[in-house]
Amino acid sequence: MSSAHALPSDRASPSAVDLAPKTSFQGLILTLQNFWAAQGCVILQPYDMEVGAGTFHPATTLRALGPKPWKAAYVQPSRRPKDGRYGENPNRLQHYYQFQVILKPNPPNLQELYLASLDAIGVDLKLHDIRFVEDDWESPTLGAWGLGWECWCDGMEVSQFTYFQQVAGFECAPVAGELTYGLERLAMYVQGVENVYDLNFNGGIGADKVTYGDVFLQAEQEYSRHNFEAADTAMLFRQFTDAEKACRTYLDAGAPEGESGRHRMAQPAYDQCIKASHVFNLLDARGVISVTERQSYILRVRELAKACGAAWLKTEGGGAS
């Protein structure tokens, strides 16, 4: 239990907050950050672009490639335009938070570390049934796959646990372990709440309480409307083509000079790959991409991801000598 000062607008009186993971969404996030910081991870901030999952963050996609060790953890807001429910479904959101941990190479005790992190956020392992249930992860757009599990807590999936085998079409050597915590779900479980919008966000007590709904309900309504009804499809089609073209242009412009040279623009190019992927998700939600076209768009994004991965491997971060 701890207390903190309230939001600046409430300056008049210090308010009561409880930042324990069981009472506060942000407390849960802070606890996970502290836990993984203690394991030597760099704690990053969310990537400043729209992505469908924490995996798209270059700190995972690009850093998973190449021989250099890497440990990072971060929250990543994730956008799934199709999952919007106008704020009416207690479990589904078109924008939600993932907590992402990436450890390269995976330490031998990654499962134990994961379980310790659950303990840290208040999941009593003597009381709850934690299970590792087969779930092989694949991202067709990233050309990536790995083996691992869904982690169940009392029958609810609370995390994804993956040993990356391939990213951007390249073998991972060494393999990275990736943990993805579904923060809202985990928080709902820990807080004992049935509706995501009822989550206590700030740990505030009484009048000081700010709920998840206070922060995001209006956004869910507006973005659902946008994603399904209003998103400008002509513009989006254009943006897809533009991003695709820009990605190629940047890759060419930064291409190594000579055999042993380094690539000089892998990351800006990869941003355009991220962009194309998100624009595709929006078009998909608008229902303007037919089943057959769908596959070809996914392939186009994958080609960008592969080219960016290849470029990254020719950079210092990618381990190029």
């Binding site: 190479p105 995976n106 092989d136 040993y163 991972c172 050597a173 060494p174 393999v175 372990g177």
Partner: peptide, 13 residues
Amino acid sequence: PKSMRWGAASAQP
């Protein structure tokens, strides 16, 4: 049916 590599050893082919 499906197998994987892992850990520091997976850096080597």
